[in-house]
Simulated scan of single mutants.
Amino acid sequence: MRKSTVFLMALALALATATAAATPPAAVVRRSRFLANVNLSPPLSYYDCMRKPPSVCLEPGSPGATCCKGTCVNTDSSFAHCGNCNKACKYGQTCCGGHCVDLLNDGNNCGNCFVQCPKTKCNFGLCDYAV
């Protein structure tokens, strides 16, 4: 390369960096790609039915349609309000369809809610488990 070409490239690089440093960056509000793609719903405190009418539990996005102790809950799957308000499941049980069940031994809810063992017994949450 010629000395004049090298000199011109160095001059262009120096001018580019000086120009970039002289202009202040624009104030840009940044959001993550995850938050930009998410439709933000109201916070759960919005569904507080203690200070609002219980009909707030029927709105779209509500955690459940029943008002229990001032909070909207789904009584079909809530551990603390299984089936109705203030009916808590015992340790080791899960709320499936409003009933407290043991997923390790229940033939109608084997390993997960509503998984039925066809002809075998449910052992350790598995159908056809060899004992």
Rank of each mutant, 00 (worst) to 15 (best):
M1E: 12
R2H: 02
T5G: 00
T5N: 05
V6F: 04
L8G: 06
L8T: 08
M9F: 09
M9D: 00
A10P: 00
A10S: 08
A12L: 15
A12T: 15
L13D: 00
L15C: 13
A16F: 10
A18S: 10
T19D: 14
T23I: 15
T23R: 12
P24H: 08
P25W: 14
P25M: 15
A27W: 05
V28T: 08
V29D: 01
R30M: 03
R31H: 11
R31N: 03
R31W: 01
S32F: 09
R33C: 15
R33L: 15
R33E: 07
L35H: 14
L35Y: 13
A36M: 07
L40W: 07
L40Q: 09
S41T: 14
S41R: 12
S45D: 14
S45R: 05
S45A: 11
D48Y: 03
C49V: 01
M50C: 07
P54F: 05
S55C: 04
S55D: 05
C57S: 02
L58S: 08
E59M: 11
E59K: 11
E59N: 04
P60R: 07
P60G: 10
S62E: 03
S62Y: 01
G64Q: 03
G64Y: 02
T66M: 02
C67M: 03
C68Q: 09
C68K: 12
C68N: 11
K69N: 15
K69C: 10
T71K: 14
V73P: 12
T75E: 00
S78H: 07
S78F: 09
F79M: 12
F79I: 09
F79D: 06
A80K: 13
H81S: 08
C82H: 12
C82K: 08
G83L: 08
N84A: 14
N84S: 15
C85S: 07
C85T: 10
N86F: 11
K87F: 12
K87P: 00
C89L: 03
K90T: 13
Y91K: 11
Y91V: 06
G92D: 03
G92L: 07
T94E: 01
C95W: 05
C95M: 06
G98W: 11
H99E: 04
H99F: 05
V101E: 01
D102H: 07
L103S: 12
L103V: 12
L104T: 14
G107Q: 14
G107N: 15
G107C: 08
N108H: 08
N109E: 09
G111Y: 06
C113Q: 05
F114K: 02
F114E: 07
C117G: 06
C117Y: 02
P118V: 14
P118A: 15
K119P: 00
T120C: 05
T120M: 02
K121Y: 06
C122M: 01
N123Y: 05
F124K: 09
L126N: 06
L126H: 13
Y129A: 07
Y129D: 10
